[in-house]
Each structure stands twice: as structure tokens, then as C-alpha cells.
């Protein structure tokens, strides 16, 4: 009877996922037709959920500064625009971003833990998290050890996330599963559960550094994992699809998924984010089109 008293999560027994059923559900959700006022509301909502991101080896303080200015002043021609949720950069550029966004409510998010592969020793990865926080990061985006996950060492993956969260304290921790490397929806569900149980505030699909970023079926599985977790624990975990979401139509489809799977409570930047760089401009173009009636040209929207 002792064994029963020790409540060790068994990550080998997470719920199974039927891939075809997931695809069908997605295509049914995609048949929603979002028009008129509900479309404008959705476009603006999407804008407010963006983590405006630059994660390049060639990033410089100048580049990050420009991105932050853009985050604060998306467009002078449209009234009632929300600002984006955060700017997401490498740890070495956190300080620059933080300074630029001072006195705004826009957060600075930093990737850490040996992003994007995570292939360095854990101590170093934790050190990087401490550094990012020290530099002023409000949010930390970590990567999980996919190699360990795929070799079945789920407990280690769990422990690493838990220890990272411990270092983060109140700083929001987003856990990147890098879904394209996990291969199956069953694995994605399992990784989502490990991350949530280990203390993730958000689960995030991708680094944006592999050939496939977020997809709707993957996101649907993660949203369902969040819902199931909420029903068991009453704890609301956030979701962040990242990589490859660059147009308004796709963004609205994501919002429809969030609305119909998790409900309106999740339709807020505190629980849903887009990791994207070019999405913002497309949303601005669409908002302008909705308000003016005319299709827009990219030349009218700043590229920062």
C-alpha cells in the first residue's frame, strides 16, 4: 500500500491522441467565418497578444531598439490600437530592450537555457536563466531537452523544468517543447503534461529555429492538454504558438481554437501569445482594410 501513497506522476500513461481526429477538428474550426465587427475585434486582440520577436545571431542593440520603438508605436494612422504583449530577445539584449520599454506595460521576454537546442550542461543553462532575469527579463522562454525526452527520460525533463521554475520564481516561465522534434501528437501531449506539472506558466510550441514551427493540430493538442490540466488542478496555463504564424487569417484561426477549446477566459495576453515577427504588420494591414474598405500595400507599414 506504500506505493500508492507516493504519488509519482507516470508520464508513460498520458492520454493518447488520434491524429486524424485532431486534423478533422481543426478543419471544422477553420470553417468558422469571422466577419465584420468580430473580425476587427479579433485582429486587435491578436495584436495585443504578440511577442514581437528577434532572435538572430546578427541582432544588435540598434535592431532591438528599433523593434521596441515599433512595439510602442505600431501605427500612427489607426486609432484604438492595443500594444503588443512583449518583446522577445536573447539574454544579452534584455537590458537594451528593458531600457527602451521602461514606463510601458510591454514586457521583455528572454529566451534562455541554451536556446534553441539546449545542448549544454544543465548548470550552464540555469546560469543563463539567472543572467536573463538579472538583466531585467520579465518572462523567460526555456527549451526542454528533446533528446532526453525522446530517449524516454521523462523524469529528467520534468526535473529540469521544475528547477528552472524555481530559479524563475515569480518571473513567467514559458516552456518550449519544440514540437517538430517530438514527432508525434502523443509525445506533444506528454511533453505538455510534463511541463505543466513541473511548473510552466506557459507552454510554447517552437523555437522558430527548426523547419517547422507552430501548426494548428499541434496547438490544438496543447490547448486540450491545458484544458484537461485546468479541469484537474484549477490552474490556468498559458499557450504560445510560435514560428510560421505570419498572416491575420491564421492568427484568427488560432483565436477561434482558443475560444472554442478553452473559452473566453483564455482570450487575453496573460494566457495566450503569438511568437511572431511579421504578423504584426499583416494585422495592421487588415485592420486598416477593415476600417477603410480598401486593400492595403505593405509599403504603408513600417518594417522594423
Amino acid at each position: 500500500m506504500k506505493a500508492n501513497q507516493i504519488n509519482i506522476a507516470n508520464f508513460r500513461q498520458t492520454p493518447v491522441i488520434d491524429q486524424v481526429g485532431v486534423n478533422e477538428r481543426v478543419s471544422r474550426l477553420n470553417s468558422r467565418s469571422i466577419k465584420k465587427t468580430s473580425k476587427i475585434a479579433a485582429l486587435k486582440l491578436a495584436l495585443s497578444m504578440i511577442d514581437l520577436t528577434t532572435l538572430e545571431g546578427m541582432d544588435t542593440p540598434g535592431k532591438v531598439q528599433q523593434l521596441c520603438i515599433k512595439a510602442k508605436h505600431l501605427n500612427h494612422g489607426i486609432s484604438d490600437l492595443p500594444h503588443v504583449a512583449a518583446v522577445c530577445v536573447y539574454p544579452s539584449l534584455v537590458k537594451i530592450a528593458k531600457k527602451e520599454l521602461n514606463e510601458t506595460s510591454i514586457n521583455v521576454a528572454s529566451v534562455a537555457t541554451g536556446f534553441p537546442s539546449g545542448q549544454t550542461n544543465f548548470k550552464t543553462r540555469l546560469e543563463e536563466v539567472r543572467y536573463a532575469i538579472c538583466e531585467g527579463a520579465d518572462e523567460v522562454d526555456m527549451v526542454i531537452s528533446r533528446g532526453k525526452f525522446l530517449s524516454g527520460d521523462f523524469q529528467l525533463v520534468f526535473d529540469e523544468i521544475a528547477q528552472t521554475k524555481e530559479v524563475c520564481g515569480n518571473i513567467h516561465l514559458k516552456v518550449i517543447l519544440e514540437t517538430s522534434e517530438l514527432s508525434t501528437l502523443d509525445n506533444i501531449r506528454r511533453a505538455s503534461e510534463i511541463a505543466m506539472k513541473a511548473g510552466a506558466d506557459f507552454i510554447k510550441t517552437s523555437t522558430g529555429k527548426t523547419k517547422c514551427g507552430a501548426t494548428q493540430p499541434i496547438s490544438l493538442v496543447m490547448l486540450e492538454a491545458i484544458k484537461d490540466f485546468y479541469q484537474k488542478t484549477n490552474k490556468k496555463i498559458g499557450m504560445k504558438p510560435a514560428g510560421g504564424i505570419s498572416d491575420s487569417k491564421t492568427a484568427i484561426r488560432y483565436l477561434v481554437m482558443v475560444k472554442e477549446i478553452l473559452g473566453n477566459e483564455w482570450l487575453t495576453p496573460t494566457l495566450f501569445r503569438f511568437g511572431a515577427s511579421s504578423l504584426a504588420n499583416d494585422l495592421l494591414m487588415q485592420i486598416t482594410k477593415q476600417q477603410s474598405g480598401a486593400y492595403q500595400s505593405a509599403d504603408y507599414f513600417s518594417k522594423d
Binding site: I34, T37, S38, K39, A41, L267
Partner: peptide, 14 residues
């Protein structure tokens, strides 16, 4: 109503 925002519902799409 036609003023439906995304949160309260979807605008009619006949």
C-alpha cells in the same frame, strides 16, 4: 447584434 465583438460571439456570416 451586428456589433458583436469576438469575445461575445461571431458576427453573422450568412
Amino acid at each position: 447584434t451586428n456589433q458583436t465583438d469576438f469575445i461575445t460571439g461571431y458576427s453573422p456570416a450568412p
